[in-house]
């Protein structure tokens, strides 16, 4: 007989956005040195994939940690509608002063989704490209 089990549910969402890695704390030359082509002044974009993991007891009546019918509109409102087809540096207030690296994007998306009422947010993982991914678990 197995001991107590932990169940989580993960759902992948997508948005596309542009950004530029640039910090006012550094000189132009330092920015180029640190961020390389990612600091191109005109910006560049990615097709981001956001993996949202929630955990908690499975409701015996529904068989679910949380209903995706609740999670999907929550993530759409808190994340996808806020970031999709935007220039993160200019159009998302949180990134006016914070460099929109995907590390910081993980933290910001985690902060936005933490309030999901139906289950505990366990992890946000973002694929910036198929080769680079980042995750934050609070």
């Amino acid at each position: 007989m197995s001991g107590p089990l932990k169940i989580s549910l993960t759902r992948r969402y997508r948005f596309s956005a542009s950004h530029r890695l640039y910090s006012h704390r550094f000189s132009e030359e330092q920015n180029r040195e640190i961020y390389g082509k990612c600091s191109n002044p005109h910006g560049h974009g990615h097709n981001y994939v956001v993996e949202v993991t929630i955990a908690g007891p499975v409701d015996a009546a529904t068989g679910m940690v949380a209903n995706l019918g609740d999670l999907d509109p929550f993530v759409a409102r808190e994340v996808v509608e806020v970031f999709d087809q935007k220039y993160l540096n200019e159009e998302v207030p949180e990134f006016r002063e914070v460099v929109p690296t995907t590390e910081n994007l993980c933290r910001e998306i985690y902060r936005r989704l933490k309030a999901f009422p139906a289950a505990r947010l366990e992890r946000v993982r973002i694929e910036e490209t198929t080769n680079n991914s980042f995750e934050f678990a609070g």
Binding site: S2, G3, P4, L5, K6, I7, S8, L9, T10, R11, R12, T53, V65, L68
Partner: peptide, 10 residues
């Protein structure tokens, strides 16, 4: 590909 559940021991 976009929905999965994990089961682990507590």
């Amino acid at each position: 590909p976009d929905i999965f559940a994990d089961c682990t021991a507590e």
